[in-house]
Design a protein around this nucleic acid. Structure first.
Length: 582
DNA sequence: TTTAGGG
DNA sequence: CCCTAAA
């Protein structure tokens, strides 16, 4: 069954596919977000969420650049991809949900529609199985709209709760087809011109409809595949790759930047000098005042000019089913460029952590360029299979390596972060970073013990390799957070500022309505009443929003920013505020 | 955990 | 949005 759901004029659109009666064995997923659509507002970024509990959970911020998200999910649960519409508007929301059944007979297929900002161009995605080759025609009936009422203010990104049932019908022969949504058809989406279906070869990448689609990844889904949480949240750089049991998982994501917001904040107190350095406007002039603590990495690798080192190991496994050899690979650690950190004694441990995070994030903020090296030579043909490239059993896997180079080649920089004590912490790479790719590969080293790393210094010096004999576990390739012990990793994650998600008018309306009835002191109730399904809106958020609404309503329209809130609503805000203030 | 406010 | 003191 295929459920397509368009929304009202200003609503979200999505196409959902249910697999209850359409066994899935494997599927491809490709999501592309045209970053240029996000350039309007500096502060904003688009969040691409991919969630597929318990297999995948991820989110990325992207901006000014097209982003390619390809993932492989295991079957059991639903999977979805959504795009934050905080900047692009609702039309940018896209998502996908899969509800594959346990038994995977043949490759399933599902269409994903990516409405874009103006509906001028649609992004094509295709998922096809290797079953029926008969083209599937999607009719208008396959598209249904999701009301703009946001369904109780549910954020489109939040698919914990499914939108109201969408009804549609799809020919029974939909199996093994590819849905193509071309620009034109999408442009007239509301006009109901529909996608055409084209059959295609399973593993072949499709570049239909939109050249922005970079890659189509395929993978097998095993019903018994161990569930893994694949998560990468290092704000900026996001590259993941993992290969695990009976499954090859590719995740390719190019995110220009993550914490744009955070970085902005970071730079707020700095200016760029003619020399390309970030100079702090305040505080720095005081220089390394007494009481400053300095950390300087002394690892031998420091000499590598801030290069990153990834240690990994790989083994090849022959799956029971034939010619399917799976390469397992584990990048145990990832080294960041040498950093010089200077923080006042009065800074808190928390601020130090953040400072380090900011530094690392800034260094790798523009992403990494990954190269695969075999026996020292770069494997340039991306289309080669691992086997063709010689990365398979029988080869000297010890010679496999990865080159991780920061994409940006910004000049040396210096970041300043406000310390908790009002003094500033300074971070700066001590060498010209990202010049040479540093990659190391090793498969015969002692198992690393992350938990033994406790000090920041050591944290940046992790340099151990896994044993080739150990069972490799899927690990985010270059998760910088892996540099620190688990517990700290959690901390870091928690300290990540949430992405900004402006309230839509619909949400404001829901909030106003709830407050009018419940008052301004029962935010939990307001949350339950109007935003129960919007997981990303906490009662604190609602309280904060109300605060800003009251403020907004108090100032002149010229002073207001962001999406304009109808005066009618603002009036209600003021009256409600006045009423409940008594 | 929720509320209430400052940052 | 974040952070937290208070309740």
């Amino acid at each position: 069954m295929l459920d397509c759901v368009p929304r009202s004029a200003k609503g979200k659109r999505s196409i959902r596919k249910k697999f209850e009666d359409n066994p899935m064995h494997r599927f491809d997923l490709l999501a592309t977000v045209a970053g240029k659509l996000l350039t309007e507002e500096e502060d904003s970024s688009t969040l691409v969420n991919i969630t597929g509990p318990p297999n995948l959970k991820d989110s990325k911020n992207v901006k000014n650049e097209q982003v390619d998200v390809s993932n492989l999910f295991e079957s059991e649960d639903s999977v979805r991809i959504s795009c934050d519409d905080s900047v692009l508007g609702p039309d940018h929301i896209f998502k996908k949900e899969l509800h594959p059944t346990k038994e995977a007979a043949s490759a399933p297929d599902f269409p994903i529609l990516y409405p874009n900002k103006l509906g001028k161009e649609s992004v094509l995605t295709s998922i096809k199985g290797d079953g029926d080759k008969e083209p599937l025609q999607i009719t208008q009936d396959d598209v249904v709209k999701i009301g703009p009422d946001m369904y109780n203010a549910v954020d489109p990104m939040d698919m914990d709760v499914k939108p109201p049932p969408l009804v549609s019908s799809v020919p029974p022969h939909e199996k093994g087809v590819e849905l193509v949504v071309d620009r034109e058809s999408h442009k007239s989406f509301s006009g109901c011109k529909f996608p055409t279906i084209v059959t295609n070869n399973y593993h072949r990448p499709h570049h239909i409809g939109d050249h922005r689609i970079r890659k189509l990844l395929a993978s097998k889904i095993r019903k018994q595949a161990p569930k893994r949480i694949y998560k990468e949240e290092l704000s900026n750089t996001e590259i993941k790759s993992a290969f695990y049991s009976k499954k090859v998982c590719y995740a390719r994501q190019r995110t220009r930047k993550t914490t744009m917001f955070k970085r902005r904040n970071l730079f707020e107190h700095c200016s760029v000098s003619p020399f390309g350095r970030q100079v702090c406007n305040q505080g720095t002039s005081k220089g390394p005042a007494k009481g400053t603590i300095k950390f300087e990495e002394s690892d031998s690798l420091s000499a590598s000019h801030g290069a990153s080192v990834a240690l990994s190991s790989m083994i090849v496994q022959n799956s029971s089913s034939s010619q399917d050899y799976h390469v397992k690979l584990n990048i145990k650690s990832f080294k960041v460029p040498e950093l010089f950190i200077e923080v006042p004694e009065t800074a808190t441990v928390g601020s130090l952590k953040r400072t380090i995070m900011e530094a690392v994030t800034a260094v790798l903020g523009n992403g990494l360029h990954v190269s695969v090296l075999l026996q020292g030579k770069k494997v340039r043909d991306d289309n080669k299979t691992l086997r063709q490239a010689g990365i398979s059993c029988g080869n000297k896997l010890d010679d496999l390596g990865f080159s991780l180079e920061p994409k940006s080649s910004q000049a040396p920089f210096q970041l300043t972060v406000r310390g908790d004590s009002e003094r500033l912490a300074r971070i700066q790479p001590t060498a010209t970073p990202f010049r040479q790719p540093i990659v190391t590969f090793s498969s015969n080293c002692p198992e690393s013990d992350h938990d033994s790393v406790h000090s920041p210094t050591n944290a940046l010096s992790v340099n151990k390799t896994p044993s080739s004999s150990q069972m490799l576990v899927p690990v985010p390739s270059m998760d910088l957070l892996d540099l620190v012990p688990r517990r700290k990793l959690r901390q870091s994650e928690l300290s990540q500022r949430r992405i900004r998600r402006p309230f839509s008018v619909a949400e404001v309306e829901a909030l106003v309505e709830a407050v009018e009835k419940l008052g301004t002191g029962r935010w939990r109730d307001v949350k339950l009443r109007a935003f129960d399904k919007a997981k990303h809106r906490t009662y604190v958020d609602l309280k904060d929003k109300w605060k800003t609404l009251v403020h907004t309503a108090s100032i002149s329209p010229q002073q207001r920013r962001g999406e304009p809130v109808p005066q009618e609503l603002l009036d209600r805000v003021l009256s409600a505020q006045a009423y409940w203030s008594q």
